[in-house]
Design a protein around this nucleic acid. Structure first.
Lengths: 247, 247
DNA sequence: CCCATCAATTGATCTAAATCAATCTTCTAC
DNA sequence: GTAGAAGATTGATTTAGATCAATTGATGGG
């Protein structure tokens, strides 16, 4: 919460050059109203591996992710883990129907976020009614993604799951902008570990590794050092992800 | 869309005695404003087996379920099916971020719904701003349910999945009202087929049937004619659903 | 630069659940 | 009531992916 001169600087510094501005819920706020946004929020930075939202903890704040990426997961008492999503630029975290967070969020590499206390959001919504609609749209869009994840976990094979994951990673944030070109190679950074991918896809680390190996042998991808993949046949992978057989 | 005298009758007939009134989004509308609700919507009834929302079709309407139950599912091109949820009294269907429905909805037994064209909802939201918040809460709560379904499909065993399903069916609609009593038997109607349960839990019909058989042998449930179960040990089932071992 | 540590790969074996295959119920229509 | 059809159960066998077990390859501190 900044005031006076420093607030104007903060606006210029924070929202003005924020790479999440056009993607996040902030895109329903006009430039001249940005000071209200800055006043309502504070910027926070977390180092790799830090859990900044704890499943079950009282939910006091919303977050907009403005840099880096995060993994969102839930745990069972015996340690089984399900990653429910990866958050990226512009994603909105902390929507929950109850008084507590439904998942833990952990920084994948360093992460920067804008934190909005619930009370501040309420005030913002009152002042900018469009924000409420934007929040609902965000929730609905997440809901649609969840439905396709259920299909991945409930009905797809290991190959189809990994293909779904790669194709999903290839469509940057805002979604269903189809793959640029059927045959155009596409290189992706993979900031998450094989264990994370396994816990996202409901597989074991060994199966993920083996399936990467198969895709490599089949000329569908090439791998550089475990944290970067190139999709050599995006069209084939996309069809595989959707359960469509070619010939 | 009724008018004049018939509208008042319709209000008394429709919302006044609607069993979904207190559960659905309609509970943010005061009694004296009900006519606006009735005017904005139409009541529709579908027979068992009818698909009243089609995955991929243009999304023109929202629905509030006011009687019966429905299954919501998505299909893969080869016919694999994932049920993404069962809708019951008061549930709100048709929230989507895109211009098309994300799932198919099919009546499980006869179903009655209130249908709201998108345009009508927009007008209602303008007139009753609280409605927007209610819609968002609905979406958020569905999101939380989805996260626990991901854990079911991604990480739980067949026994844990079926236990999760039974416990979920036992907590009527509004959720986490814990099971009445650890040891109090609880009888549930199961309007869905074994195939539906299998497609909801990411299992085959045979595995569902076998697991029912095991639970029966272990004295955890008793089954009356495939469409009714009694939970004899709700506490044990609940622990099993959450992956907690007893003794 | 090299060792220690942790992540990823690869191989051998096992198993939970799928698939294949009969029955056995339940319900409906006549 | 009875025949037919659909759904559910139960059994035998197979298999995709898990588990167990080394090895190999990265990464970072001294």
């Amino acid at each position: 919460m900044e005031t006076g001169r420093s607030l104007i600087d903060a606006v210029r510094e924070r929202c003005g050059r924020c790479s999440g501005r056009s993607l996040s819920i902030c895109n329903v706020i006009d430039d001249q109203d940005l000071p209200a946004l800055v006043a309502a929020s504070s910027r926070v930075v977390f180092p790799s591996g830090r859990c900044f939202i704890q499943e079950g903890a009282p939910a006091h704040d919303f977050y907009v992710l403005t840099g880096g990426r995060a993994k969102l997961f839930t745990l069972m008492p015996d340690g089984r883990r399900q990653i429910v999503g990866f958050a990226e630029l512009g994603d909105f975290l902390g929507l929950t129907s109850s008084e507590t967070y439904a998942f833990t969020a952990e920084a994948l590499g360093d992460v920067t976020l804008c934190r909005f206390p619930h009370s501040a959001i309420d005030r913002l919504v009152e002042r900018f009614p469009r924000l409420r609609g934007r929040l609902q749209k965000e929730a609905s869009s997440e809901l649609v993604k969840m439905q396709s994840r259920l299909m991945v976990l409930g009905r797809k094979t290991a190959r189809e799951r990994l293909a779904s994951f790669l194709v999903e990673q290839a469509s940057p944030c805002c979604g269903h902008h189809a793959l640029h070109d059927e045959r155009e190679p596409l290189t992706l950074p993979l900031p998450m570990s094989r264990t994370d991918i396994a816990d996202y896809l409901g597989l074991t680390i060994e199966t993920v590794s083996r399936t990467f190996g198969l895709f490599r042998k089949e000329g569908l991808i090439s791998v550089k050092g475990a944290s970067s993949v190139t999709l050599l046949e995006p069209g084939v992978l996309s069809d595989m992800a959707n359960g469509i057989k070619r010939d």
